Structure formats: structure tokens, C-alpha cells
Simulated scan of single mutants.
Amino acid sequence: MYIDAFLKYLRYERNYSEHTVQAYAKDLMQFEAYAKEHQEGVFKPVLVDADIVRNWIVYLLEDHIQASSVNRKLSSLKSFFKYLMKQGIVSANPLRLVNGPKAKKALPYFVKESDMEQLLDGDGFDEDFEGVRDRLIIELLYDTGMRRSELAGLKDVDIDYGSMLIKVTGKRNKQRLIPFADGLKDMLCIYVEKRNDEIGAVGGSLLVKKSGKPINTSDIYTVVKKRLGEIPTLSKRSPHVLRHSFATSMLNNGAELNAVKELLGHNSLASTSIYTHTTFEELKKVYHAHPRAKKEGGHYGN
């Protein structure tokens, strides 16, 4: 009776779509069935308290209902009791002191170190200008963890070969310095020499197209998607996957969380802590934090 009246209110007074009304109906019918088990077979909203709602949450979670779905059901129930309060049927909303379960954040997708080694050290890149450039794009993203917008904005003057530091301009024009290893230095030198010989003066941008125009974020995405497509087990292929891979590899190989936070340009340590999802099983004591730096004689994390 109460639920039917509420659904009519949603349908005719609030003009909710039939799909939305049916979703509310399903959630509320489920709660009604559960509540009846605790109210001698009769659903009486006035007798519903926070304990019944909390027990229902536990029941749903034990039935393997995802936290996001549980929270949606609680939202439906909260709206229902707000309606009942307006109608004077109940004096308080029993959900006012009830918190829903925290939904698990999606873990960052990353490439296995062995797959990255095979991709970067294999013979899949041509030796022409675009092949050298594309390999450098993948290497820069994986070795430094920078965003694709940051990579697209790199200038020649941002590379300090003597100190082996890259100056990156991130969000809100905040700048940070990222160290790089000998192997990446060699690749940068090879690329710049080839670019200058074949393309000529390019106005200061590090990465350019064959036309001499600066490369943009869409170009970088296309290159990464194509190259990561060579890893058959990988279902997600984007520049951000390489950023995730950088952070995961750093932590798995002994880098401190706060140091990785600074390298990524995160404002909050909480943003970086999600990358610890694999470290508990894979963490090993090593001298160099990043596998590429260790392999090619660099000194990440030192």
C-alpha cells in the first residue's frame, strides 16, 4: 500500500521515467520482503529502525550484492521514507544515521614489467624518424610516469642532459623535476639528432610530426594504443596505463610512496596510495626502484 502510493507519486507528480520507477519498485519490494521477516509478516514502516536497515545491508553484502548496488537501494529507501515523513506516516527517517558500504575503487590498470621489457627491447619499432619517435614516446611515458598532456608540452629546453632531469609542467602550471636514466638519455639524443637531420628547426618542441608541427595529445594516444596493442593479454591501452605502470613498478621495486607522489605530481598522498595494490605480494628489496633504470644503469629512487 505505502510503496504503491510512493511509486504513483514518482510517476505522476515527479514525472520519473517508467524505467526509474521500476528500479525504485524493485529495491523497495526487496526491502519490504526482508522487513516482513522481522515484523511478523506485516510491513509497517513506522516500526522500521536503523538496526533493520543495517541488518539488511549485511544481508545484501553477504548475498554478494556489490556495494554500489547496495548504496543505490539505500538511496531508494531513503527517498521512500522522506515521502512517508511528508505524508505524516512516520516521524523520522530511519536511514538518517545509516551509512552505506564504501564502494571499492577500480584498481589502476597496468602493464606487467616483463611485457614492457619485451615491447621496448624488441624489434617492433622501425629505425626511421617515426619509429624512433614512437619508441621514445612509450619510453618517456613508462620511465617518467608523466601525463600525455605533459609529454605533448615538453620543450627541448626542458631536458637537462647534464643533471639528467626533465622539467614537467603539470596541472595548474605546477612544475616538477623528474630524473631519468642513462638509457633514456641515449634515446633522447638519438631522437633529437634524427629529428634535426630530417625535420630541421621545429620551434623548440621536443616531439614533432614529420611535418615539423608539434605532436598533440591525440597523436600520443594513437601511438600508445597501437604499440600497446602488440601485447595480446592487455585489454586496456592508453597513455594513462603507462602512468599506472610507472607508479606500480616504482613501488614494487622499493620506491617510497611519498617519492612516487612527487614524481607523479599528485597533490594528495591518497591519490598515490591506490598503486600499492600489488606491492604486498611483489615488493622486493632492490637497489634501483625502476626496472628500466636498473637495467640500463640509471639511478631512480637514489
Rank of each mutant, 00 (worst) to 15 (best):
D115G: 09
M116P: 05
E117T: 11
E117A: 13
Q118P: 00
Q118I: 11
Q118F: 03
Q118E: 13
L119G: 01
L119F: 12
L120G: 06
L120D: 10
D121S: 14
G122W: 10
D123W: 09
D123V: 09
D123Q: 13
E127S: 14
D128Q: 07
D128I: 12
F129L: 07
F129H: 05
F129A: 02
E130S: 14
G131E: 12
G131Q: 10
V132Y: 04
V132L: 10
D134R: 03
L136V: 05
L140W: 08
Y142D: 02
Y142R: 05
Y142V: 01
D143W: 02
D143E: 12
D143G: 15
T144K: 07
T144H: 03
T144C: 04
G145F: 09
G145N: 05
R147W: 06
R148Q: 14
S149Q: 12
L151M: 11
L151D: 02
L151K: 04
L151C: 06
A152G: 06
A152T: 09
G153Y: 06
K155F: 09
K155C: 03
K155D: 11
D156R: 12
D156Y: 10
V157D: 15
D158I: 02
D158A: 04
I159N: 04
I159S: 00
D160M: 01
D160S: 09
Y161K: 12
Y161L: 15
G162D: 15
G162F: 11
M164T: 06
M164P: 05
L165W: 10
L165N: 06
I166H: 05
I166N: 06
K167F: 12
K171C: 08
R172M: 08
R172K: 14
R172F: 11
K174N: 07
Q175G: 04
Q175L: 04
Q175M: 13
Q175I: 11
R176T: 04
R176S: 05
R176D: 01
L177D: 04
I178F: 03
I178A: 02
P179M: 07
F180Y: 15
D182N: 14
D182E: 14
D182L: 13
G183R: 14
L184C: 10
K185Y: 07
M187F: 07
M187L: 13
L188E: 09
L188K: 08
C189P: 00
I190W: 08
I190C: 05
I190R: 15
Y191R: 08
Y191K: 02
V192F: 10
V192W: 06
K194L: 14
R195V: 01
R195Q: 07
R195D: 01
R195I: 06
R195C: 01
R195L: 00
N196I: 02
N196S: 11
D197Q: 15
E198R: 14
I199F: 06
I199C: 07
I199A: 06
A201P: 07
A201S: 14
V202R: 11
G203Y: 06
G203T: 02
G203E: 01
G204F: 08
L207F: 13
L207Q: 03
L207R: 09
L207T: 09
V208E: 03
K209W: 07
K209Y: 08
